[in-house]
Every structure is written in C-alpha cells, then in structure tokens.
C-alpha cells in the first residue's frame, strides 16, 4: 500500500489547499511573465517571450538582477566560511554558554529586517565609519541575515557525526588540521554546500535591509520590483521574477542532491 493511500481525505484536501496557497502566486508570476498581452487575464491571451526580452533589455530590472547575483555570491562566501567555522565550534565545545551563542547567531531570523536595517544604518552614521549606503554596509547586513541558515544546516550534519572517524585518521598519523580537512570537512561538505546555497538564495531575495542600507546604485531585484509594484504591474517585473524562480528551484534541487532535506527539520 502506498503511503498516500493510508492518509484520510481531510488531510489530503487540506494539504492540497496549502500547496495551492504556496504555489498559485508563483504560477501567476510565471504566467504574467510569459503572457502575450499587456496584462494578465484569465484565461491568458497566449504565450510570448516579449516580456522576457524586455527584461533582458531593461536597465532597471536586469541590472538589479545582476546586482543581486553579485551581492548574493559575495555574501555566500563570507557567511559560509565564518558560519561553518562557528558550527564546528558549536557542535564540539563543552562551553556552557554555547547554547546562548547559538541563540545569538540564530536571532537575525526573528529580528525584524526593518529593525535590523535601521539599527545598522543608525550605527553606521553614529560611528561615522563610512559604511552608510555603501556596498560593504549592505553586505554586512546580508551576512548577518544569512549566517543563521548556514549554521542551521551545518550543525544539523555535525550532530550525527562519528568522532571516532577523525580519531582513526589521527592514530594513522594525520595532524589535527589534516584529520579535520581530510575526514570531517569531507563528510560535512555536502551540508556546507547546501548551507551556502541557502545563504545565496536568502541574500538574493532579501528585501527589508535594502530599504535603509541600499542606495541608487545599490538596488537589488526585490527592491526594484517593490518600487515598480507600488505603481503598476509591469510584466517585465514578472519576467524578472521567472528568472528568480528558476534560480531558487534549481538551487533547491541541487541542495536535495547534496543533503537529506529531512535533516533540516529534524528536531534539534
């Protein structure tokens, strides 16, 4: 008997409704971006690539897309390095305050993005360290909000790690760092890759920080779409959305090859 058959119909209907709520807006964006007409109607007027071409030629949206990619790539590198280091520490230390430290590193997930944006901007201006409305200033914000995702992913993979493997390497003559590099890092590397993908995607979709840390030449895709959505529904923005959707789905498929996605929701 397949597992779906065991579930009662109220569960199935409820699950279908939740999936509709999750996916319908995404489907609409894809349709709006591929629609032939000037605005989306139901049923659509036919498919065309005109808005996709308009997006690639659009200075606003295409430049914003490239900016988001660049910022996300740099964010990913920094968050992955310091996040992985911190995860190894958190998984191995006997220090009693480690739980509180983990709580601190995870807190950007629940701290309102708008509060963090204002806090960082106020801090930059108050201390006059020349980071207000700069690329580095924005990057710092992105690293803060993406680190929790790296830590969550990497610590999850370290929980089930068998330390005797590393000890075996040591007893066979490897130095501590060599043993770490050849054994532990190899084993957790899928989780590190998955964590870095999460960091990339979270940074790519980050909106709230740009409100206060962004500037004219520091505009990512979410902000460009927000500005356009305040006034009209540009199909070009929807076409830009399609490229973001493809990026996210490909990243998730890639992560699912690297790690068991179930591990992410295992009760910590």
């Amino acid at each position: 008997m397949s597992d779906a058959a065991r579930l009662s119909w109220p569960i199935k209907i409820g699950a279908a409704m939740a999936l509709i709520v999750l996916l319908l807006p995404v489907v609409i964006v894809v349709l709006a971006g591929l629609n032939a007409g000037d605005y989306l109607t139901f049923p659509p007027q036919g498919l065309s690539l005109r808005w996709v071409i308009a997006f690639i030629q659009s200075e606003t949206f295409f430049d914003a897309y490239l900016f988001s990619l660049e910022l996300a790539a740099i964010t990913m590198v920094i968050s992955t390095i310091i996040g992985t280091m911190a995860s190894v520490y958190l998984a191995r230390t006997r220090f009693g305050g480690a739980k509180a430290m983990r709580g601190l590193f995870m807190s950007p997930i629940v701290l309102p993005g708008i509060v963090l944006g204002i806090a960082l901007y106020v801090f930059y201006v108050s201390t006059d360290i020349g980071l207000a409305r700069t690329f580095t200033g924005l990057l710092i914000g992105h690293v803060l909000v993406t680190c929790p995702f790296v830590i969550a992913t990497v610590t999850a993979s370290l929980v089930g790690f068998d330390p005797s493997l590393e000890e075996a390497a040591r007893s066979l003559g490897a130095g501590p760092l060599q043993a770490f590099r050849l054994v532990t890092l190899k084993i957790i590397s899928p989780a590190v890759s998955a964590g870095s993908i999460f960091a990339f995607i979270i940074s790519f979709g980050q909106f709230d920080l740009s409100l206060y840390l962004g500037a004219q030449n520091l505009t990512g895709l979410p902000y460009a779409m927000y500005i356009s959505l305040r006034y009209k529904f540009e199909p070009t923005a929807a076409a830009a959305g399609i490229f973001a959707i493809v990026l996210v789905v490909l990243s998730m498929v890639l992560s699912s090859r690297l790690i068991n996605l179930r591990k992410l929701v295992a009760r910590a």
């Binding site: 807006p25 995404v26 609409i28 964006v29 979709g205 909106f207 979410p222 779409m225 927000y226 973001a244």
Partner: peptide, 8 residues
C-alpha cells in the same frame, strides 16, 4: 523572494 510572491 517575498516581493515576487506578492506580485502574484
């Protein structure tokens, strides 16, 4: 990105 979903 939430803004994309809000567009939909």
């Amino acid at each position: 990105d939430g803004v994309i979903r809000l567009y939909g």
